[in-house]
Design a protein around this nucleic acid. Structure first.
Lengths: 87, 87, 87, 87
DNA sequence: CGGCGCTACGTCCGTC
DNA sequence: GACGGACGTAGCGCCG
């Protein structure tokens, strides 16, 4: 018998039910997550309709996630590489 | 002056505030989304501690998502092409 | 009869063969494309092994694709938004 | 001095040249890749001009890719879990 | 730290 | 010709 059989086929009468419960809990949360993602998308759409550039807006959000120390380090490394490529 | 300047610097006194509002609404929702993602992760951890193989579990979730997507598709023209490719 | 049936089922004896030919030409090219993508990945790996930061390297490549006019415009819009968010 | 400076500014006289070499090799390959992508696009255009539905054609390609991927998978544990979820 | 799966971004296509 | 939607691709983060 493979090591996993008892977990899914199992000696306990509820094993399949237990697996199903996990799956359903996860799927429920993923639905909620998708719903929120949709809300976020809507806000971008709204901002766009008012005239904001969504690409830049997304970039602002992204950059705000990084703390300034990290950001400056990245910038400086980028600048170094960039300069090294100048003919 | 670029087309967007008036939106952020703007003639209206609230332009920067408006941008800020968008950013904060988005960031709020992203926090919620991240929290849910954490919950999902916890469930996988719990399942794993009981002995389930998380990779397979993830795959089951993934396949179930694909399945329901597929079910809603129009199949006829696809079937025609597909059949034409059978050797 | 639907408009497409003659193309795939067809009056001409070669219709299925023609479709098959399209599919195979495309799949051949996609293979080549994937091979090149693999080569690119290898170069990044090599660069990394020598000590380069691949994230920055990728960013350099990405930025070089944009011409400098576009890049400066994007930078300035980003700066505008960023400044507008300063408390 | 940051850890990476020696790689680009470097003790060796060729560091910048080495970086440049990486960048150029990558950019060369990306050009080739883009060219192939263009060829693929052309084939779709050609197929379309003959009357094929490109959306379906793309889907056929996609499904064939998935199929061959699936065929190479280990199925047993997945099947076990999957069966356990059947109502 | 290397591989893989998920997320997110940019691009392309069809529509109006 | 612009817009929105869909797809494929690339970047990122988690897991092993």
């Amino acid at each position: 018998m493979s090591k996993s059989d008892d977990l899914v086929g199992g000696t306990g009468p509820n094993s399949a039910a237990r697996l199903k419960s996990f799956v359903e809990r996860i799927e429920k949360l993923e639905e909620e997550k998708a719903a929120i993602a949709g809300d976020i998308k809507d806000i971008y759409t709204e901002a766009k309709s008012i005239g904001y550039d969504t690409a830049t807006l997304r970039r602002v959000i992204r950059e705000r996630k990084k703390d300034s120390a990290d950001r400056e380090e990245q910038e400086s490394l980028f600048d170094t590489y960039w300069a090294a490529l100048a003919d």
